[in-house]
Design a protein around this nucleic acid. Sequence first.
DNA 1: GCAAAAGTGTTGTTGGTACACCCATGG
DNA 2: CCATGGGTGTACCAACAACACTTTTGC
Lengths: 235, 235
Amino acid sequence: MLYISVLNTHKMHQSIQLSVDAVVFGYESGTISVLLIKRKYEPFKGQWAIPGGFVLEEESLEEAVARELKEETGIAINYLEQLYTFGHPKRDPRSRVVSVAYFGLIKPSAFKILAATDAEEVQWFNITELPSLFFDHEAILQMAITRLQGKITYEPIGFELLDTKFPFSDLEKLYTTLLGRAIDRRNFRKKMLSLNILDELDEKVSKGSGRPANLFKFNNKRYFKLKKEGIIFEI
Amino acid sequence: MLYISVLNTHKMHQSIQLSVDAVVFGYESGTISVLLIKRKYEPFKGQWAIPGGFVLEEESLEEAVARELKEETGIAINYLEQLYTFGHPKRDPRSRVVSVAYFGLIKPSAFKILAATDAEEVQWFNITELPSLFFDHEAILQMAITRLQGKITYEPIGFELLDTKFPFSDLEKLYTTLLGRAIDRRNFRKKMLSLNILDELDEKVSKGSGRPANLFKFNNKRYFKLKKEGIIFEI
DNA sequence: GCAAAAGTGTTGTTGGTACACCCATGG
DNA sequence: CCATGGGTGTACCAACAACACTTTTGC
């Protein structure tokens, strides 16, 4: 009996469907946002949801998630990190759908969002002002936010979220926002510079009032090296 | 056209199969082992593999992985942590199978392993002496080992791997083994005790030669509290 | 010249690291 | 009494935390 069930398993029509979801965060002047789509069709038409969809037979999960994101929002990003796989049997009341969630970081200013396929609308939402979401998408998003906040303790962050050239205060504000609290400017700068991932440029920018700031950029090589090695960052 | 394809998606026969795998580590007197099964049937009969199998329609991923582990090895554990989802289209040459890998820790001495269903044999393998494995199971195992080693920097470890009562030297040896290097006995003890997760018992044990050691046990409440909060542990 | 933001150093404290000898038991 | 593993304290140093004033620009 066991023998038969085992042999059959591989041919058995399992009828579990597999989807992917892309939680994409953006940062702009002190606000962390997440990209959501409004469903165009029934069921749940008009509900906000995390972009995503079904995996095709011949594509990898990474290809699937990048494709769905592109199709639904117009955004093409090449690096999404796997977050978690959600597989509760009743998470989608219609049928059994297991979803592999990914997350990524971008600068919203560098992309043009564009509703397509099953999205009626695409919009950035401040993560502190989220609408109610489809199925278990709130739980997925919550996990992604927690991961994002956790990341800054063991990895440098900012490269994907800031402009190529930026004043130091932008980086500081990003950390302040992610941590949700003020940080000591002097200590932060000291620590950041000691990591050797920033190159100070010979260029200044003025924001209209106040002393103009020197611009920095990330030193990609050292940034990604450090990211791989892991850091212990405690501010 | 888009409309139709979207509406169809949910009914479309996707024919991707979903499986789960359980990487179970054990520790015993200075050795970290992993539990593997030998496949009983073709194809790949006789190959060693990580225990696992297909997810059933009505069960969650966690239920599936616990069930498969129980069926194939006789081991029932209630906590397996999700590791990663492997979905390369060609990882199983027969058909498209996406697998959600989990990992867990146990004390081998507390369980009796027992080959069943599609396992011909079940065996603990020292992680430094692994056989060649089925498909991409080596990559899965490698990721699990990396995660296990990484865990000790941000979580206390040991509760699941050691006996209820243990001499301090057992804990020290566990860390030495996981880290793959010697640690300073005095500093390690100082740091461990300062975490407040150990209760010293009024009981001694003698290993035959040498001064008898005091026994300790983990204070479950504080251990799991700390585990949740996360620690930064750098020895 | 004043408002606004950028830039900068020092000191006390804490926690990490390095290091060597005595203790309790069994044989 | 010796071999074996268990148990302990101190001193140095590096890293973190706290803290306030000066500089440069626009208006």
